[in-house]
Simulated assay, not measured.
Amino acid sequence: MIIEQILSDLEHVRIDDRRNRHLEKVYLHSDDLVKRIQRVVTDHGRELGISLREPRDLMDGDVLYMDDESMIVIEVIPEDLLVISPRSMQEMGEVAHKLGNRHLPAQFQEDRMLVQYDYLVEAMLDEENIPYAREKVKVKNAFRHVGHSHG
């Protein structure tokens, strides 16, 4: 089966429609969310090809397939992240500046900054006495590196 478009996301599928269908999941690492063309296997062993017509990243909860009996949904695998919780806007700016100099992609959830685990970043946070935790977190979107040169 080839998937060429995302039908919906799990949040927008009615609860009754979810209950009445067998749910299969495609487990992906966040890095795979940016791939428009890939081969995947559901947790029930069904092989799928994903070849999206529109340029769009995949997201946790995307519905790839749905019929009267079943539904196939993307589930992102939790990954090893540093969850940074600056105490002030000043501290947030300083952390963001230092991470930006390293060209590290970050995501934000409420008042927390999420970055993929890196021992050098962890050492910098310890050195600067910035509150953080190392956690397994499921992100909704891929960490996207922004192309940039200093030249």
Rank of each mutant, 00 (worst) to 15 (best):
H103G: 09
E91R: 09
L120G: 12
R102Q: 13
L114A: 08
R19W: 07
V63K: 01
L52Q: 07
V121M: 07
H148M: 11
S30F: 15
F108Q: 12
H22L: 11
R21A: 02
L82P: 04
Q5G: 00
H148N: 10
V137R: 14
I74Y: 03
D57V: 01
V121Q: 09
E91D: 09
L28R: 06
V146I: 13
Y117T: 10
G147I: 08
I72F: 06
R36M: 09
P105V: 02
L114D: 06
S149E: 11
I15Y: 14
G61Q: 06
N101C: 07
D118A: 10
G100F: 09
L28W: 06
S51C: 09
F143E: 04
L81R: 03
M66W: 05
D62P: 02
S51N: 12
M92N: 03
R21Y: 02
L33D: 07
S30Y: 13
L82A: 05
L81K: 05
F143K: 03
M124I: 09
I6E: 00
T42E: 04
V139R: 09
V41K: 10
K140G: 06
K140P: 00
L81T: 10
P86W: 03
D80R: 15
I77V: 15
R102D: 08
V13I: 14
E69H: 07
E110H: 12
A133N: 11
Q107T: 02
A96C: 01
E127Y: 13
G147D: 12
N129Y: 11
S8A: 11
V83D: 06
L10K: 03
R53I: 06
V115Q: 14
V76N: 05
E91N: 07
P131Y: 13
D118N: 15
F143Y: 14
M1W: 05
P78N: 10
Q90T: 11
N129K: 15
Q109C: 01
